[in-house]
Design a binder for these strands. Structure first.
Lengths: 233, 233
DNA sequence: AATGGTGTAGTGGTTAAACCAATTGGTATC
DNA sequence: GATACCAATTGGTTTAACCACTACACCATT
């Protein structure tokens, strides 16, 4: 027997045990989104712990959007959608400085095939949505207004055009990671025309159902923007 | 003035305000990973709130892995890595049933270009790592053992070969979303040979620095597995 | 010098009790 | 039926006390 046969003993905390228990109940389907939990006083008694200890556990679960407490009403298993579930992580990640270079490269890797899939799968209403966003973007750029919102919406709409919700959530997460870097880049007026031109080319390829062109135009667009952002840093 | 000019008033809770404040301090760099926070009793006094209320806020932050409390020592700003930051989300998502179809499609979209990038960027040690994993996988498959771990490591190692940390984290997240579905698929013995053969073809393409072949072999591999998993559901 | 034992101070973890704030449901009134 | 009021219930916060653990300092033994 060697020293490495011994493992550090992990102390459990009461409120963490409660979190575990609740998570498992939800995972097992015994508690479902929308279900109301017993009142805190009752649940604390059932669990054999003090109410503040239970509340510590509930705060953890609430921070993770797994439950929702309403004063005067009760505590419910959350019906949060994916976006709401991801929001805490996005907030946490925004406190960290990640390599912008890596994020930009990730975009270069994933957005061309996403555009390609959009060219394959877009429905007429998806195309209309893209055209509508582009029109607003053009109008605002023409008036010297800020277009970061349209830029985001355009990429988001391409993801939507794939008809795949996970792709949409992924783009959402990537965009939030880049956060303010893109926004500040778009503040410079002549760059808005670059963004607009890139978007136009992408949209034309998608409209034409030309998968290779969609991939290529998106690739060029992301590279152009990526280079400019890196120069700016 | 119309009714729509009025906006619902959002009540703030004290402990949520504290979470906001702490998050902002971390985001602004005024609190850095590894920094020690003042003792709870002192901090509660400074903030002008009760200690249980502060503790509620700290539980939220701890649940999000932003801080770490050590009994008898103190509370620190967390030095958690990306994987640890993502873990709570992965746990939450595991309580939800997401469309396996969408996740598999997402893999079909992103893993071929990732393999392509790996063929471009892999260093000798990356190739060695892939070969090593494949050898272990082959050995275990040959002995009728379970190979889910090697399967995961192989895809992870391809992401590593891109040299892009965000790509690695993304693959990590996607794999955890698929969780047990892949594992159960690999339990069936003859499927291990399919997985092994697919991995071999991908590795050969990467070794040959053949980007197109890497993309193509990965595409076929993911499609083959995806179809089988969907059939199983 | 290295190891083991003890004590103290400080810090987080839990409990108990009280009070405050918000929501919901029931009842009375018009 | 619509509105107002009230009581009960529920979550939110505060105060106080005690428990459990850690870090550190000091001393004794080998």
């Amino acid at each position: 027997m060697t020293e490495s046969d011994f493992v550090r003993v992990k102390r459990s905390r009461v409120h963490e045990d409660i979190v575990q228990q609740m998570t498992q109940l939800i995972k097992d389907g015994k508690l479902r989104p929308g279900d109301k939990l017993p009142p805190e006083r009752e649940l604390a008694e059932t669990l054999g712990v003090s109410r503040p200890t239970l509340r510590n556990a509930l705060r953890v679960l609430e921070g993770l959007r797994m439950i929702e407490s309403r004063q005067g009403d009760g505590t419910y298993v959350s019906q949060a959608n994916f976006e709401q579930l991801v929001a805490p992580l996005a907030a946490v990640l925004s406190t960290r400085a990640f390599l912008v270079k890596d994020i930009l490269e990730l975009r270069q890797i994933i957005e061309p095939p996403i555009a390609e899939r959009a060219a394959l799968k877009a429905r007429p209403e998806d195309i209309e949505e893209l055209e509508s966003i582009l029109a607003v973007q053009a109008k605002k750029a023409g008036e010297g207004l800020e277009t970061a919102e349209e830029d985001t919406r355009f990429h988001y709409a391409i993801a939507e055009a794939t008809g795949n919700q996970m792709v949409v959530h992924l783009i959402d997460l990537v965009m939030s990671l880049l956060g303010e870097v893109r926004a500040s880049w778009l503040q410079v007026p002549d760059r808005r025309e670059v963004s607009l031109a890139g978007h136009r080319a992408i949209l034309n390829a998608i409209k034409a159902r030309d998968q290779a062109a969609a991939s290529q135009t998106m690739k060029e667009h992301i590279e152009r923007i990526g280079q400019a952002i890196e120069t700016q840093l």
